[in-house]
Design a protein around this nucleic acid. Structure first.
Length: 299
DNA sequence: CACTCGTGGCC
DNA sequence: TGGCCAAGAGT
């Protein structure tokens, strides 16, 4: 019995009942879920995904609305650039692929906001293809079960893909199922902080456990600060804009943070990212909220 | 390769 | 309390 076999058998009875896993979910639904799940926990994605899919059941629907609506609907999922990229992604799908989410890996990779992981996840989970799909969960599971290391080091995409590829069954449908099974295992059993080894299907063969589950030597990755960073200030500025439909005066945005240098840097960043647009010299709107008439006045 | 980019919950 | 972590992508 291979690791993939054990993972699939475990998944068959332990998988969570997530809405984007139902057979009726479209490739678009899978794509939306994957983008939302980039660095955001499942528990917060679930309601957002339902709302999103109700409002924009296909790429054409999203592409027809301004980016500002996508940014608002994104709410507090975090990293709002993802909302903008998903909006751009919808536009690209309409223009390049007639509104259908492509099933080709390279075509998926060419879409905004779709990287190595997401392209493979969509090709595998939406279209049932056979590709190694490597996220942080899979890297941790493979690192422990196969290599005996307590945690995966920094992501090394090519090596990670090769490692996972060697574990995939030849049978295509089973390969796809093995991929989601490895991810699920890392998400709910082989977790970063308190792994539940007694529940693990790899219990008797895991290299890490057989060597006594040694603790990590140091922090598994660089600590991420938030308080006082530009990210926090950007978040505060965007928070104001999300809740306003009309132009927001610079003076209003000045109230979110006292340090002018940092405030300016944050706003400049948002403008460079295209999340925010200037409306005249001293007003700002969410990207895409620019009224047509006002645009005319600028020229 | 190293760094940036939100937000919230948990131990 | 606060560091740590969460289905990454882009530069």
């Amino acid at each position: 019995m291979t690791l993939a076999d054990a993972a699939i058998a475990w998944y068959d009875t332990n998988a969570r009942d997530l809405p984007w896993r139902t057979p009726s979910t479209t490739p678009w639904g899978v794509l939306v879920s994957e983008v939302m799940l980039q660095q955001t926990p499942v528990i917060r994605v679930e309601p957002a995904w339902r709302s999103w899919m109700t409002r924009w059941p296909n790429p054409a629907a999203l592409a027809a609305d301004p980016a500002s609506e996508a940014i608002r609907m994104w709410g507090r999922l975090g990293y709002p650039r993802r909302a903008m990229r998903l909006h751009a992604c919808a536009g690209a799908i309409v223009e390049r692929h007639g509104g259908r989410v492509p099933d080709d890996l390279d075509q998926l990779l060419a879409l905004p906001g779709v990287g190595t992981y997401t392209a493979r996840a969509v090709a595998t989970f939406a279209y049932g293809q056979r590709h190694p799909v490597v996220d942080t969960n899979v890297r941790r599971v493979v690192s422990r079960a196969v290599e005996g290391k307590p945690d995966a080091g920094p992501a090394t995409t090519t090596a990670d893909l090769v490692a996972m590829a060697s574990l995939l069954p030849e049978d295509v449908p089973r390969a796809a199922r093995a991929s989601i099974a490895f991810m699920e295992l890392g998400a709910i059993v082989c977790t970063a902080r308190s792994p539940k080894c007694v529940d693990c299907p790899f219990h008797d063969v895991c290299a890490w456990r057989l060597s006594g589950t040694p603790l990590p030597a140091g922090p598994s990755r660089k600590p991420q600060r938030y308080a006082g960073t530009d990210r926090q200030v950007r978040g505060l500025i965007l928070e104001v804009l999300r809740h306003t439909t009309g132009p927001v005066p610079r003076q209003r945005l000045d109230q979110v943070w006292t340090d002018e240098i940092q405030r300016t840097r944050a706003l400049t960043g948002l403008l460079e990212d295209g999340l925010v647009e200037p409306l005249g010299p001293d007003n700002f709107v969410l990207a895409g909220d620019t009224p047509r008439a006002e645009v005319q006045q600028l020229f």
